[in-house]
């Protein structure tokens, strides 16, 4: 996305180009799976078991390193000992990057809400785009989250100010009118 970053489009992004870029982006998500606990098994089931087969949604698992990934799925319990590693991983990922927090533990601490060693929510460490509730969420829920993320990516603006906003970690504003026009 180098062109976009440097502001070739200036203030007014070209809608068709944006659409095309986003369309390509959303179907080639390199997903780094940060499996931490029980939820990791459900994520593994979503990835590896023939019944769910996440790759058909355009998600490419097992990138060689986080520097190659567009999306990280934090699935499971985040402990205070683990949190620095997660932050470092997130910083290594190239922009634009997305985070899915899978499971109650990653969302808010889940069953370990009162523990002395569990971080109560991964969003204290890194910004999160999609939360998946459940303990554990079913693999279908992860697929749903991917679809929601793809929708969000599709509707992202690529203008400079819009991207800057995205990088501030705020929520991307979904352009409803645009979505309606697309349908």
């Amino acid at each position: 996305m180098g062109l976009v970053e440097k502001g070739v489009f200036g203030k007014k992004p070209l809608k068709p180009v944006t659409w095309l870029l986003n369309y390509s982006r959303k179907y080639s998500l390199w997903m780094f799976q940060w499996g931490l606990a029980c939820c990791a098994i459900e994520m593994g089931a979503a990835l590896a078991s023939p019944r769910y087969d996440m790759m058909r949604l355009g998600v490419i698992p097992f990138p060689a390193s986080p520097r190659q990934a567009d999306l990280v799925v934090i699935s499971g319990t985040v402990t205070d000992k683990m949190a620095p590693a997660i932050k470092r991983l997130y910083e290594q990922m190239p922009d634009p990057k997305y985070v899915i927090s899978m499971g109650s533990c990653a969302n808010c601490g889940g069953p370990y809400w009162d523990s002395y060693s569990v971080t109560k929510g991964v969003d204290q460490v890194i910004p999160v785009d999609i939360y998946i509730p459940g303990c554990p969420p079913r693999p279908e829920a992860l697929l749903e989250a991917i679809v929601m993320l793809q929708e969000r990516i599709q509707n992202e603006g690529l203008g400079n100010d819009e991207l800057a906003q995205r990088w501030r970690g705020e929520h991307v504003v979904v352009d409803n009118a645009y979505m309606a026009a697309r349908v």
């Binding site: 000992k81 601490g109 009162d114 523990s115 060693s117 109560k120």
Partner: peptide, 21 residues
């Protein structure tokens, strides 16, 4: 073994309170 090196206190002692609670 479990906790990061800078952790203070002995969690399983009864006088170690769970802050979240």
């Amino acid at each position: 073994l479990y906790l990061p090196g800078e952790f203070e206190g002995n969690p399983l002692r009864k006088d170690f309170a769970l802050l979240a609670r």
